[in-house]
């Protein structure tokens, strides 16, 4: 007999892992099956040999060293308190879908905050007026005027304090920056608004600012101390700075 479909029961029978019912059935089978008897004998022989076989014991010093090394190995692992581990588990290791969504939303909010405060704002300042003209309607008109006056005042103050001989670099930078041009565009835009509102005082002020700004723009290619002096004198005569200051403190 070369094969028996019950031969695998021999192992369970020998190691007493069969139920009583299975055991009884197998014992009946065993009486008739030569192959299973051979397998059972082989198992008995192996078990006897293994019983006699003694595993070589490790040296005591070796065993002590092994235990010490295990202890050292695990004490070198980073210790974590259960609370920290729980937090890491919840948020990093195994976050639920809700936590993942919340993390994504939080990340988005942080991104928008950073963007609005550090990227979009500066981009807004650098964008020529013609590009954000379409958004003009949504801006608060008063706020636009206030900002405009603040910017104009700053530029005019810079100009009035310039030393034509010593501040050549600053003059060059001022002219290089196209801020004057934006101010010029903003002036034109506000003038249109002022015409619509029929605000004569504002129209007159904007006209005078426009004149000074035009002079500044013309300086782009010819920066001479005399030219700067002339603009400074013009600015002084116009009392623009004083007027802007007083308007800023009034209700517009």
């Amino acid at each position: 007999m070369s094969s028996c479909n019950q031969k695998h029961f021999t192992v369970d029978y020998f190691f007493d892992e069969l139920t009583d019912d299975q055991k009884l059935k197998y014992e009946n089978h065993l009486k008739r099956c030569e192959l299973c008897q051979q397998h059972l004998d082989a198992l008995k022989g192996t078990a006897t040999a293994v019983k006699r076989f003694q595993r070589q014991q490790p040296d005591k010093k070796f065993l002590k060293n092994y235990h010490r090394q295990l202890q050292e190995q695990f004490s070198s692992e980073k210790k974590r308190t259960p609370i920290i581990d729980k937090v890491i588990d919840i948020f990093i290791r195994r976050p639920s879908i809700a936590i993942r969504i919340a993390e994504a939303v939080a990340l988005l909010i942080v991104g928008v905050f950073i963007g609005r405060n550090f990227v979009w704002q500066s981009e807004f300042l650098r964008t020529p007026l013609s590009q954000y003209q379409n958004n003009y309607q949504i801006l608060n008109e008063d706020l636009l005027l206030k900002n405009y006056l603040r910017e104009t005042e700053m530029v005019l103050l810079d100009v009035s304090n310039l030393d034509p001989v010593e501040d050549q670099k600053i003059i060059f930078n001022l002219i290089q920056s196209t801020k004057y041009r934006y101010l010029l565009q903003k002036t034109a835009l506000l003038k249109n608004q002022a015409y619509e509102l029929e605000d004569q005082q504002l129209i007159e002020l904007l006209n005078r600012v426009e004149l000074i700004l035009l002079e500044l723009c013309n300086l782009e290619e010819q920066v001479s101390p005399a030219a700067i002096d002339e603009i400074k004198q013009q600015l002084k005569r116009s009392y623009l700075l004083m007027e802007i200051k007083s308007i800023k403190h009034q209700e517009i």
Partner: peptide, 16 residues
Amino acid sequence: VRGHLLRATIKLRKKL
């Protein structure tokens, strides 16, 4: 597993 055990024990028996 039972197959592995049977094969191993038969081999050892033969060796013995």
